[in-house]
Design a binder for these strands. Structure first.
Length: 214
DNA sequence: CCGCCGATCTTT
DNA sequence: AAGATCGGCGGG
């Protein structure tokens, strides 16, 4: 059996650490043990996509817990969150990294074309690579992980009591809650992300006028 | 291992 | 115009 909806109905800050050690399972045999997550809350979290209220993109986050919120970013990457909190709130937990436990060949096939064959450690290292490995994309947005209506489920993991580390979230702009210790991970796991202070700064855009202006 | 930088397109 | 990122490349 998978996780119950009640287990995901709490605040993102409470649910996030409980997802560590759980397995994300796809019906085709792929599975990965979650080792790094981040909590995102709604209206009081400037780092959340839901900060400024519901939009078509964030609609799933405002729905009932236990569903998957999948978003597209940087023009090429998918990232996945587990929606938590009561219906009407926008709590969610970003799945940042995992350790492959089954279906490794399929995960590697999903990376065909890479210049270098990815190591096992790299397959689910980072939120976009995790989605690539598990075959998650926009078609999975809204999938119910409790019912498994689209072949994706969340299974309970190791017994509670494993040590959990905590620190700042990754990749947020300064001022967007980048210093809040809302990231949780299992110490010693090789696919956990390093923390980049201030995130990556975008190069200043050259001109302020229109292209070909003048 | 680390830092730099381009890719690529949706959302606001 | 920026974004909850990644892969390639160069240097230590």
């Amino acid at each position: 059996m998978g996780l119950t909806r009640a287990a995901l109905a709490g605040d993102a800050l409470d649910v996030a650490p409980t997802l560590l050690g759980c397995r994300l399972v796809r019906a085709d045999g792929r599975a990965a043990r979650i080792v790094e997550v981040e909590a995102y809350r709604g209206g009081d979290d400037p780092g959340s996509h839901a900060y400024r209220g519901p939009t078509p993109r964030t609609a799933v986050m405002f729905g009932p817990p236990g569903h998957l919120y999948v978003y597209f970013t940087y023009g090429m990457h998918w990232c996945a969150n587990v929606v938590c909190g009561a219906e009407g709130t926008a709590s969610a937990v970003l799945l940042r990294a995992a350790a492959p436990t089954a279906g490794v060949d399929a995960m590697r096939a999903a990376r065909a074309g890479a210049a270098r064959p990815p190591t096992d450690r790299d397959l689910c290292r980072g939120p976009a690579r995790l989605c690539r490995a598990m075959g998650i994309d926009g078609a999975d947005n809204g999938a119910d992980l409790v019912r498994g209506d689209r072949g994706l489920t969340l299974e309970p993991g190791d017994p509670a009591g494993a040590p959990v580390a905590r620190g700042p979230r990754v990749g947020l702009a300064p001022g967007a809650g980048d210093t809040l210790p809302w990231r949780f991970w299992l110490p010693g796991e090789p696919s956990v992300s390093p923390w980049r202070p201030g995130g990556r700064r975008r190069r200043p855009t050259g001109g302020v006028g229109p292209p070909n202006g003048g």
